[in-house]
Design a protein around this nucleic acid. Structure first.
Lengths: 229, 229
DNA sequence: AACGATCTTTACGCCTTTTTGACGTGGCTT
DNA sequence: AAGCCACGTCAAAAAGGCGTAAAGATCGTT
C-alpha cells in the first residue's frame, strides 16, 4: 500500500522525529500523538492505515490503549517498547497487537515489518462500519443509524449490539453475551438481563419489534443478528 | 483457529521435537519436514494452516524455499533462524515471510506470534459444513437446512443430530447418544428419550418419516446416520 | 436537593420444550 | 400360539425459557 497513513503514538520527541523522517522518506504520510488519549482521538478522527504504539506512555498503560483501540479499529498495530520481557510480549500480542519490536530496533527491520503489516490489510480496505440490512454501525464513532436516522443507544445496548454485529450470522450464546457485555457473571441471575435488553434493542432497531427480522431468538441457545443482507 | 495444522520445516531433530510437543500441547496438529524440498512437497500435499520455516536448511537456501512456497501458498509463514543480521530479516520479510523469530527464542513468544498469524487468516478459513444427502449442517452457524430450507430444531434435537452427523456412517449406541446429548444418565429410564427424539428428528429431516432413509435403526444397538450422499 | 437517564430487580403471563406415562406394533423366543 | 422385548407414536403433565411491564436503585448533572 503506497502512501499509507501511519499514526505514531510516542511521548519521546526524538523517536517521533526519527520515525516521521524515515517513514516519510519511504513515501508514507504520518500523524503524531504524544499520549494515549491523544492517540486514540487521532485514530478516531483520521483513520490511519497502521499504528505504531509505544507502550511506555505517560498518561495510561500501553496495553490499555491497545485494548481501547482494538474495540473498533482494525488497522494493524505495531507495538514499540524498551521492555524485553516475554510475558509483556505475549500479553500485547494477545490483546490485539500485530507485531512487537523491542528498542533499540533497526530501522530497516521496522520498515520491513510495516510492509508486512500493510500487506496483510492491503486490498481489503477495512472500514470499521458494519452494515446489517437497513442498519449501519460505525464502531469508530460509536454511532448507530437506521435508514440514515441516528439511534440513541445506552452503553449496554450498544455493547450488546456491537457483540452481535461483529459476529453477525452466527449464534451468540447467553453465556458469550454475558461475558462480552457484562464481563463474566453468575449465569442464572444474569441471563434475565439479556432478554430485557434484547427487548429494548428490538424496539429501537426492528421495523416490527413483535416480529423480529434482524435480531432473532435461538430458543435454548442464544440470539443471532442476521448477516449483511 | 483451534486445531490448526502447522507444518514445521527444520533439519534439527531436537528443535523439531520441541516444537512438535509444544504445539500439540496447545491443541494444534503438526507435520514435519527435514529439508526444503520435503517441506515444499508436504505443504503442497497437506495444505497446512501455518508454516514454521527454519532458514538454515541443508539442501537449499531458506529464502529460496520461502519464495517457492509463496508462489502458490497463502498460509502464513513464520521464519526461524539463528542469524540476527538485519539485512536477512528484511530480505525474508520482503519475500513473503509474515514474521521472523531469532533463535534462541521464547516458546511463549513464538506461540503468541502463531496466534497472531492465525488470527489474520482466521475468519476467512472455511467453516465445517457437513453434507448428508439433501441435508446440510453448519456447525459454526448452528444452521440445519434441508433442500436449502432452514429447519427449526430444539436444543436436544440439534445435539442429537450433531452427534449422529459428526459420526456419520457408523452406528452410535444408545449409551453413546445418551452420554453425548444428555450427559451420562441411568440407562434404563432414559433410553426411552432417544426413541422419542429420533422420531421428532425423522419427522423433520426425512422425506418419508415412516420409511427412514437417512436416520436408520440398528435394532438392539443404536442408530446410524448414513454417510454423505 | 432535585431531576433525568440508565441500570437493576421483581413480578407475571405465555409459550415451547422436555419429561412422563400409556398404548400399539412387529419380531423373536419359548 | 403365547409371551416378551425393543421400537415407535401419541398426548398430557411438568418444567423452564421467553417477553413485557413496572417498580426500586444508582449515578451524574443541574
Amino acid at each position: 500500500m503506497v502512501g499509507a497513513k501511519i499514526l505514531i503514538i510516542d511521548d519521546e520527541a526524538p523517536i517521533r522525529k526519527l520515525l516521521r523522517v524515515t517513514l516519510e522518506a519511504h513515501g508514507y504520510t504520518t500523524l503524531e500523538a504524544v499520549s494515549g488519549q491523544n492517540g486514540i482521538l487521532k485514530a478516531t478522527m483520521e483513520r490511519p492505515d497502521l499504528i505504531i504504539l509505544d507502550l511506555g506512555l505517560p498518561d495510561m498503560d500501553g496495553v490499555e490503549a491497545l485494548s481501547q483501540l482494538r474495540e473498533w479499529c482494525f488497522a494493524p498495530i505495531i507495538v514499540l517498547t524498551v521492555r524485553d520481557d516475554e510475558a509483556g510480549k505475549v500479553f500485547a500480542l494477545d490483546h490485539g497487537a500485530d507485531d512487537y519490536v523491542t528498542k533499540p530496533f533497526g530501522m530497516g527491520e521496522l520498515m520491513a515489518r510495516i510492509r508486512v503489516a500493510l500487506r496483510h490489510v492491503g486490498n481489503q480496505a477495512d472500514e470499521p462500519v458494519l452494515v446489517i440490512g437497513s442498519l449501519t454501525i460505525d464502531l469508530a464513532r460509536r454511532i448507530v443509524e437506521k435508514n440514515g436516522e441516528p439511534i440513541r443507544l445506552t452503553p449496554i445496548e450498544y455493547d450488546l449490539l456491537k457483540t452481535l454485529a461483529t459476529n453477525a450470522g452466527r449464534v451468540m450464546t447467553h453465556r458469550q453475551l454475558l461475558q462480552q457485555v457484562w464481563g463474566e457473571q453468575n449465569y442464572e441471575t444474569a441471563s434475565h438481563y439479556i432478554r430485557i435488553y434484547v427487548g429494548h434493542l428490538r424496539k429501537k432497531i426492528e421495523d416490527d419489534p413483535n416480529r423480529p427480522q434482524l435480531l432473532t431468538t435461538e430458543p435454548g441457545v442464544g440470539y443471532r443478528l442476521i448477516a449483511h443482507s
